[in-house]
Design a protein around this nucleic acid. Structure first.
Lengths: 148, 148
DNA sequence: CCAAGAATGAGACTCAGTCTTATGATAGGT
DNA sequence: ACCTATCATAAGACTGAGTCTCATTCTTGG
């Protein structure tokens, strides 16, 4: 989370989107939103629960999952399937679309982005028997430490 | 499974690869291999267990998972993460690389392939801080029936 | 044919994710 | 500012995909 976070950062946008969608406010959702905003990359639901507990803002497991579902519905959060048993979640920023590299050896997850890849997917989406709404690419392999 | 299945089909190749890797033969693994060879697209472990039971070749759950892991180790099978709670598995054919479209409304899974996309990923794999071993792309959206 | 040890089955077990229900908080109407 | 309908949350029981253990069965090299 930027220390200069202003009206255009993710937290206020999230609040606005939720209000517009008819949600009321609540402490648990607020805590989850602020935590997600402070992350560099995707977290699992369990990691979120533990992180909040460790900063004395305990949120029940059911609430974590419900809140993540709600945020996903309104496209404030996206799921990341890393093939690591637990699904990961991260905030969606309109100006910062990225995908993920997963090290199958140590579990490290890193973001990446590539314009040629985006173009290929856009073109492809037109020619396929599916109204594509989401795409999410995960490349598996060995990170620099593990490959060495 | 082609009715003309010959020495170059997937089943014999699988047997050869497994033998070379030091595995013995066994009825359960044989049953799983033959079932996977007969599929058009990816199955879940539970679907595999049920399909085998319905054709009177009951294989225990532990064996299904162990066998799928073994087959994945030697690259005879690949996991497909569709974001549908259960992981899917399908045979890997050297000459038939494809990806998947998932309908988030009805759960339909369809294969597709695209050369421009493959090229983009190949190029990209060179420039990324990961020794890429696998890539698996899932596009989410609404299928023609559900979009209508 | 005979071990040595791999393959399998059966079922207990784990734990991420879901569901239920009682309680607490929010916001529009007064 | 208060009321109250109703949404948000906590707590914890519950579900089920996937794992683990271990006794038994099958393969295969010698």
């Amino acid at each position: 989370m930027s220390i200069y976070a202003g009206a255009d950062s993710w937290v206020p946008r999230a609040e606005a989107v939720l209000t517009r969608a008819g949600y009321r406010r609540g402490g648990a959702r607020r805590a989850v939103i602020e935590l997600l905003d402070a992350q560099e990359c995707a977290l699992t639901a369990v990691e979120i629960e533990e992180a909040l507990r460790s900063e004395h803002r305990r949120v029940s497991r059911a609430s974590v999952y419900r809140i993540l579902d709600e945020l996903e519905q309104v496209r404030l959060v996206q799921r990341v399937e890393t093939g690591q048993t637990m699904v990961r979640y991260e905030r969606v920023c309109e100006d910062e679309h990225h995908h993920h590299l997963v090290c199958d050896s140590c579990g490290l997850v890193m973001p990446f982005s590539d314009k040629a890849l985006e173009r290929a997917i856009e073109t492809l989406s037109e020619r396929v028997p599916l109204a594509v709404s989401e795409h999410e690419i995960v490349l598996h392999g060995a990170c620099e430490d593990c490959a060495a």
